[in-house]
Simulated assay, not measured.
Amino acid sequence: MPIAKKTVVTATLLLAIAAAAIWFLNKPISPRLAAPTAIPVRVVQVVQQDVARYTSGIGSVQSLHSVTIRPQVDGILTRLRVKEGQWVKAGDLLATLDDRSIRANLDQARAQLAQNQAQLQVAQINLKRYKLLSVDDGVSKQTYDQQVALVNQLNATAQGNQAAIEATQVQLSYTQIRSPVTGRVGIRTVDEGNFLRVTDTQGLFSVTQIDPIAVEFSLPQQMLPTLQQLIRAPEPAAVQAYLGADSNSPDALLGNGHLTLIDNQINAGTGTIRVKAEFDNAQQKLWPGQLVTVKIQTALDQAALTVPPNVVQRGLDQHFVFRVKGQHVESVPVQVLYQDSGLNIISGVQAGDVLVSDGQSRLKPGSQVQVLSDPPPLVQASEPKP
């Protein structure tokens, strides 16, 4: 075979081998069908139960009776009979003022009354005598009439003396300052020995009622029809007061009360209406001036279908939930009838339905799921005994 022909054949073989190698390396890999992977999720069941509906607001604690104790007569404070922070009852003696001047005036008024009564007694005896003499014209009609006028004058003077005694007795009672309400004594502003005047505006101290106590708060004006229904209800609406916004903690609950009053006008500037509730405060958890979160029960839904808030998803035009059917899920449209931080009341599902509560971001209708169990609670290892 000629050399040139061998060279051509060899080159052709080399090109064929190279082309086969290139085709083999660039050969498309046929796709392999991957087995579907289950998406891990956590689930809850729809629970049917009675649910109380609440509306909340921020309120301030107010005493039902808070009185600043002021003197009603001028005088020296001789003795304070209570201490700061002491609990007193209505009528208890709180302080005494110097009463010597008023007692002297009382004795003087009584002496004037006794003197006038003696003059009145003599005038009445003379009137009887003139009346008998006037029958036989022993005295003139004018003399008799003058004696009648004198008796009436002395009688009126005696009544005036008696009124002066009573007025002085009232002034004397003001020297003993008594508590008008049952409550707690505040911080005092004066000490024994100070001269007190009626015009003093500061007062001695205050007495504030703590139990029962009130909470005043504001709600939107749209709540007015509901509040009016609650006021007219046979049983007062329940109201709860919490410390801060966390109403789920049992330690945050300060007291349970009831609705008592709706203000007679709406604040046009804020569009709110003031409401007042009364609380029993035997444990003194509520304190005047304290800011609290108030929850008022507005309704009670019986046999309501409830789920945790994270179960309900928001779609483009409606809410929906993922319901587990066997190993797959389906999308179910629902209506949210009521919601708060702890639960949602919904319609469109049945009691006992299993709904996805965690892992919805990877789901779509028909997705295969794997239900995860709740993690076991952490148990702290006990320290070795020495």
Rank of each mutant, 00 (worst) to 15 (best):
P2V: 05
K6L: 15
T7D: 08
A11F: 10
I17K: 01
A19I: 15
F24G: 10
K27I: 10
A34S: 07
P40C: 10
V43W: 00
Q45H: 08
V46G: 10
D50M: 07
S60N: 15
S66W: 00
I69Q: 01
I69S: 03
I69G: 06
Q72R: 03
T78W: 00
R79K: 09
L80G: 02
K89S: 15
L93D: 10
D98R: 00
R103G: 09
N105S: 11
N105M: 06
A109M: 01
L113N: 07
V122T: 10
A123D: 02
K131G: 14
K131F: 10
G138T: 00
D145K: 06
D145W: 04
A149I: 09
L150T: 14
N152A: 12
A156W: 05
A156G: 12
Q171S: 14
S173T: 11
Q176R: 12
G186A: 01
V190R: 06
S206P: 00
V207M: 02
V207D: 02
I213Q: 06
F217Y: 14
S218N: 13
L224Y: 05
L227A: 13
Q228Y: 02
P236N: 06
A237Q: 08
Q240I: 07
Q240N: 07
N248Y: 13
P250W: 12
G255R: 02
L261A: 11
I262E: 02
I266G: 07
N267H: 09
N267R: 03
V275Y: 00
W287I: 14
G289E: 09
V292K: 05
T293Y: 13
T298Q: 03
Q302W: 08
Q302H: 14
T306S: 12
P308I: 07
V324A: 07
V324D: 04
K325N: 15
K325Y: 12
V332Q: 02
V336H: 04
L337C: 02
Q339E: 11
G342M: 11
G342P: 00
G342F: 05
G348T: 11
Q360P: 00
R362N: 15
R362M: 15
P375V: 10
Q380M: 14
A381M: 12
S382R: 09
